[in-house]
Design a protein around this nucleic acid. Sequence first.
DNA 1: GGAAAAGTAGACCGTATTACTCGGGTATTG
DNA 2: CAATACCCGAGTAATACGGTCTACTTTTCC
Lengths: 152, 152
Amino acid sequence: MRLTTKGRYAVTAMLDIAMHRHRGPISVVDISERQGISAAYLEQLLAKLKKQGLLVSVRGPGGGYQLEGELSGISVSSIITAVGDGVDATRCHGSGDCQDGHMCLTHDLWSDLSEEIDSFLTGISLADLVGRKEVQHVATRQDQQLIHTRHL
Amino acid sequence: MRLTTKGRYAVTAMLDIAMHRHRGPISVVDISERQGISAAYLEQLLAKLKKQGLLVSVRGPGGGYQLEGELSGISVSSIITAVGDGVDATRCHGSGDCQDGHMCLTHDLWSDLSEEIDSFLTGISLADLVGRKEVQHVATRQDQQLIHTRHL
DNA sequence: GGAAAAGTAGACCGTATTACTCGGGTATTG
DNA sequence: CAATACCCGAGTAATACGGTCTACTTTTCC
């Protein structure tokens, strides 16, 4: 399967936007500084998320990104696939022609695993994450940290 | 998480050895031809599996690799980790210092995911795979294929 | 004893991908 | 008009994956 920093960054960014959604549009720089992700790189990811309809953007001063739709309607799985990190664990991408046209010895195993992972990540929404105590804890620490470093 | 062809090859090779275990030691070339995996590359993987105690080797003519221990005692998870494809989905490898010494916003999510995947793969042993109808089906096809191509 | 079969070891390499940068845009606000 | 912030495409450094090549050593069997 293919879960890289790209997918992790995407989920982190989406969650960051979710945590600060009451502040209106969130700028790339804000997310970048809070989450410690390169701003230029983040832009690419957010662009993909927008293209997939998970975010909307507001241009100009005071602009930024906002979630499209309800927190509970956005699953972790949808975020990861939106930026191209597939959840698929098979080599043949599910087609079953892993070994010169035939199915390889372990095809079903990876197929089952893919399903397992996907159903797990589909079952977790931004709403779930936002509700977690640990997440709230980390978020407030990051907010404090940002205020602190900006006053230096 | 990091599931690449390396891990898939390793599981495939182990399963191949398991399916033919009654024939005594299985040579790298046999596995290579049946499973369509580069022999030289396979050797590296089998060496790691041996080093981790999942296989024993017999040198000389008629030699090859054999499973160490019971089929039911070898989990897919142990095979994958033995060749270096971790099941870990976190960036910090579980330590929790993902963001300059602190925990990142999504640490727990990846941690939970890792656990989910690991428990799934730990729950599947070679014995389970060997017992599957589809696997037996594919194995006999591969055996026929090998006999056929060797007589050309 | 020697040829052949088989594992052992490790350096090496091409390439694909990832993560990231850069340099310019364009829209919006005040 | 100037500052803010998104938009977009090209380029790049590092990594690691999949794989090769070479040169062994051990064991069996004739």
